[in-house]
Amino acid sequence: MPEAVRTYAFDACAAGAENSTVVAPGVTIAERRPRSMLNVRGDPADAGLASALRESFNVTLPLEPNTVTAAGATRALWLGPDEWLLVSERHALQPPASPGRGTLTDLSHGRAVLRLSGPDVRAVLAKGCGLDLHPREFPVDRCAQTAIAKVSVILDHVQPDVFDLYCPRSYARSFWGWVTEACAEYGCRIAPPAS
């Protein structure tokens, strides 16, 4: 079966806005286009679920709240004591046939993802987000679900000074407006989408 043509929520916002000429940008914005996102629900102690995730995706679920485990190009984000988000850059994650007593739901089209990076990224996020994002409190491989500019966002600290923001795709245009406005004073480069 041919794969359906995929459209991306930030396309309409970012198209034509790319500006690689900004010198020493405080923040760089790029849409991120992960191939696949799966929502996992289940008891982390369930051996069937754990082994299905290990065999299918080579992933071990993080048990500490608001942390991320990374396995190759796949990241597993803690969303709740019985809920996680698996995100893969490159692979189409196929839910395993028998995930124990867990449930896996493909949400790949549900959220749009922006990657913000640069020395001023925390100053931008602080304008709309009440969390303490200092590296001491919010180190790499920590995630959080919160509201940024009143949009419900999953925040993932991928690398030092690099944050992925997952917003509901129907909010993408409004969120894009807020992000670009918040970034403007620091010098903002809009980069082409990263897959």
Partner: peptide, 11 residues
């Protein structure tokens, strides 16, 4: 108890 202190607006 899971996420630590958060603003009341999240609740």
């Amino acid at each position: 108890p899971y996420c630590g202190p958060r603003d009341v607006t999240e609740f």
